[in-house]
Write a protein that binds this DNA or RNA. Structure first.
Lengths: 233, 233
DNA sequence: CGTAGTCTTGAGTATCCTCAACGAGGGTGG
DNA sequence: CCACCCTCGTTGAGGATACTCAAGACTACG
C-alpha cells in the first residue's frame, strides 16, 4: 500500500471538453464503481487495509499509512493527500493501517475485482493504473534514498520540500502540516525530538519560516544542501 | 526502477501443459519482443536506465540497482536476481545505474511501447504487469521498514533471510552471496564495517554458519529476533 | 609468490536516541 | 470566564549505536 500523487498531471477540465470522451483521463472511468466514505481524525480506515479487496484514493483531508510492530516501533510508509491512491500492496508479513489525520477525511473505495474487469475492456485504463503504480514505485525509491543515506537535517529538509510541492497551495507559500512531529519522525526514521531540533535549526539558518503547524520555505537551496552554503557542487 | 521477484508464483511447465494456451502465464507473451544482452562483472547495463524506453528482466547472474549522489554516497535500491524485473521507474531527480555483479549476467530488454501495445490487446498480460508492479511495491515497503526502524543487527539478519529465500538453492541451504560487504552496506544503509561486525556477531550467536562468501542459516529465529533468545514475544 | 581487492577487527568519535522537564495551545467542565 | 487537563512541541543532558579512520588478515588471481 502506498500513495501515488497525481497532482501535476494533465487532467482535462470536464466542463470545457465535453465533446470527445477520449480526451478525458481514462482514470475517471473508475469513479463509476467508487464508494465514498468519511472518517474522523485518528480513525483507522477499513481497519487493516486488505490489498486484495480494494484500491483506495483520498478525496479530501489527509491520512497516514502505518506499519506497526509488536514492540511498539512504527514506520509511516506514506502520507496520503487528496488525489493520492493507496492500497496497492502491503509489505510481506506486516499489517498496514491507514489512519485519517484530519477530521472528515473522505476516501473513495474501488473494488479490485471490478477495477480489473473495467481494465480488461478499457486498455487505456489498464495503462493508467500501471502508470499510477510506477509513480508509486518512483516515490518509494526516493524515500529509500532518504531513509538509507541522509542525515537528520537532510531528511527533514527533503520532507519539507516534498510537502511544499505536494500541497497545492503554491501561492505565497505558507504550507500547513497536517501531521504531528511524531508522525514526521516515524516517516523519516527519526525520533520526534530530533525532528523538532532540525526544524528549529533550519529556522535559525534562515531556510524556513516556522510558526506552529505552518511553515514557509525561504531558502530552498539551504534546505537541500545544508552543509554547503554556496549550493550543491 | 526496482526488482520484482517472481519466484514462487505458479508457473506451469511448458513441456507438460502444451494443450491449452490459456493455462500459461500471460507474461510469457512478452518474450516475443525481448532482446537479450550479456554483461561483464561491474559493467553498467544500458548506462543510465531510462524507465521510459525499456523494461528489463534478469535472466541469469545478478545485478545491483544503484543511486549515486554527487558527494559519493551510494544507495543500492535493489539486488536483482534471475527472473526479477527492473526499470519500472526511477526516483525523481536521481539517475539509477544497474550494474552486473557477476560475470556474464544476462538481461532481457523489453521495449516499453511494444509492451504496452501487447497489453492493449491482451488484458491478461496487462493484469500480470500490474501484479508485478504491485509486488515490487510490497517489496519496497518491506525495505522501508528495514531502513527506517531497524538496528544494524536486525538489518543484516533480515537481509540474510531475504537472500536465503530469494536464492532458489533451498536444499541443504548453503547460500552464496554474489555481492560484496560494501554492496550489502549500501543496500542496508550501513557501513561495510558494521555489516562485517554484525555478520561475525550472528556467527558467534550461532544464528548462521559463515565461510567467506557462503553462509547457511542455522537458527532463523535468532536472526529475526536477536534480542530475545526465547523467540519473539 | 606477490599483488590487489576484500574482509575483519580495533579505537575513538559523532550523530542521534532516550529520558526528563518545561511551555504552549485547545478543549472541557465548573 | 477561568481553572484544569491533555496532547503536542521544544529544549537540555547523558548515553548508545553506528561511523570513521586505520591496520592487519584472508582470498583470488596473475
Amino acid at each position: 500500500m502506498l500513495g501515488a500523487n497525481l497532482r501535476g498531471e494533465a487532467r482535462p477540465n470536464r466542463q470545457h471538453l465535453p465533446l470527445r470522451e477520449c480526451s478525458q483521463d481514462p482514470l475517471q472511468a473508475i469513479e463509476a464503481i467508487a464508494s465514498l466514505s468519511s472518517w474522523r481524525r485518528s480513525e483507522a480506515i477499513d481497519r487493516r487495509v486488505d490489498p486484495h479487496a480494494h484500491l483506495y484514493r483520498v478525496v479530501s483531508g489527509a491520512a497516514r499509512a502505518c506499519a506497526l510492530r509488536s514492540d511498539g516501533r512504527r514506520q509511516i510508509l506514506d502520507f496520503l493527500l487528496p488525489s493520492d491512491f493507496f492500497g496497492f500492496a502491503a509489505p510481506d508479513g506486516h499489517d498496514v493501517t491507514v489512519e485519517a489525520m484530519v477530521e472528515d477525511t473522505r476516501v473513495a473505495r474501488y473494488p479490485r475485482a471490478r477495477l480489473e474487469m473495467l481494465a480488461d475492456f478499457d486498455p487505456q485504463l489498464g495503462r493508467r493504473l500501471r502508470e499510477v503504480a510506477f509513480k508509486a514505485i518512483a516515490r518509494l525509491q526516493t524515500r529509500m534514498l532518504i531513509l538509507g543515506r541522509m542525515t537528520a537535517l537532510e531528511r527533514v529538509g527533503c520532507f519539507l520540500v516534498e510537502m511544499a510541492e505536494r500541497s497545492a497551495c503554491s501561492v505565497g507559500g505558507a504550507v500547513v502540516l497536517p501531521m504531528s512531529r511524531y508522525d514526521i519522525a516515524d516517516y523519516l526514521g527519526l525520533s520526534a525530538e530530533t525532528v523538532s531540533r532540525c526544524m528549529t535549526d533550519l529556522k535559525h539558518r534562515g531556510a524556513i519560516v516556522l510558526r506552529g503547524t505552518r511553515f514557509r520555505i525561504v531558502n530552498r537551496r539551504a534546505l537541500e544542501s545544508w552543509h554547503d552554503p554556496g549550493g550543491p557542487s
